[in-house]
């Protein structure tokens, strides 16, 4: 099939899955226990890697930007620099990419294995809608947990940045904290929380769609996992640009 037609067909399938997920919310049964289990797996399970990512990203931001800031004699603004980058951009995007790698792959592998071993068909044959039972709880858990993970990554990023500024560049902690406070506003924080809601949705829908459309046995499962991570990551980065622009317009953030 022509790559353009394939893209359009896939976009249609993803949209259809999202629409059916939304429609299924109107009536029961609702799987709250399954949603909580997914929230635990996605939220608590991903916390260590997200914290590590945030911590070292914050650290490396200060490590790289401090000399430049010092050149212009504005090294006291290093906190502002790291806070703005992390809260507006890197916190949401890096958390989403880490979750896409860890959770998106797990979801598509799990659903893909269920498809090839006929468990999804068995579920439908037993009168259960797989979208209600499997897709909706996973998407809901991702939408709910990714903003919280992002906040955790932001906080650890600022701690990492502060430690590097203090121990490597001997900057006073008080100066760093003050600079962070001056650098970010409530709008930045709100904007930084809105992005992960969309990223969670993207990762969930893409991973579930790739998993449920698995064909061709175990090789197909591997292919679905790879496609899921790559596709979700690319969409996260593309959407980040448009979301940044929309937030600039709606919340008036990110402008000088």
């Amino acid at each position: 099939m022509n790559p353009l037609f394939r893209f359009i067909a896939e976009l249609q399938d993803v949209s259809l899955l999202l629409w059916r997920s939304i429609i299924s919310l109107r009536h029961g049964p609702r799987y709250f226990a399954e949603t909580l289990r997914q929230m635990d797996m996605i939220g608590v399970g991903s916390l260590p890697i997200v914290l590590l990512t945030g911590f070292f990203t914050g650290g490396v931001l200060v490590l790289q930007t401090y000399p430049t800031l010092e050149y212009y004699s504005i090294q006291n603004e290093s906190g502002r620099s790291v806070a703005t980058s992390l809260i507006r951009e890197l916190g949401p995007v890096l958390s989403a990419l880490m979750v896409s790698g860890r959770i998106g792959s797990a979801i598509s592998a799990e659903l893909g294995s269920m498809v090839v071993s006929q468990q999804i068909e068995a579920m439908r044959a037993l009168g259960t809608d797989p979208i209600r039972k499997l897709v909706v709880p996973r998407i809901a858990a991702l939408i709910l947990m990714l903003p919280l993970l992002t906040v955790a990554a932001d906080i650890f990023g600022l701690i990492g940045g502060g430690i590097v500024a203090n121990y490597i560049y001997s900057q006073d902690v008080q100066v760093f904290v003050e600079s962070v406070r001056n650098g970010i506003s409530t709008k930045d924080i709100v904007g930084g929380m809105i992005k992960p809601l969309f990223f969670g949705l993207i990762i969930g829908v893409v991973a579930c769609h790739k998993g449920l459309s698995t064909r061709g046995g175990t090789v197909g499962v591997g292919r679905s996992v790879t496609n899921s991570v790559v596709t979700a990551s690319i969409w996260v980065i593309i959407f980040d640009f448009f979301l940044a622009k929309a937030l600039q317009y709606l919340l008036d953030i990110g402008r000088l």
């Binding site: 071993s117 006929q118 468990q119 068995a122 259960t128 809608d129």
Partner: peptide, 23 residues
């Protein structure tokens, strides 16, 4: 549609080739 079919499927039991048990 799918919700109507869910009702029909309540009357039917299905035995799959490999069992298709939820592992």
């Amino acid at each position: 549609d799918e919700p109507e079919l869910m009702q029909v499927r309540q009357k039917i039991g299905m035995v799959f080739q490999e069992g298709a048990l939820f592992d």
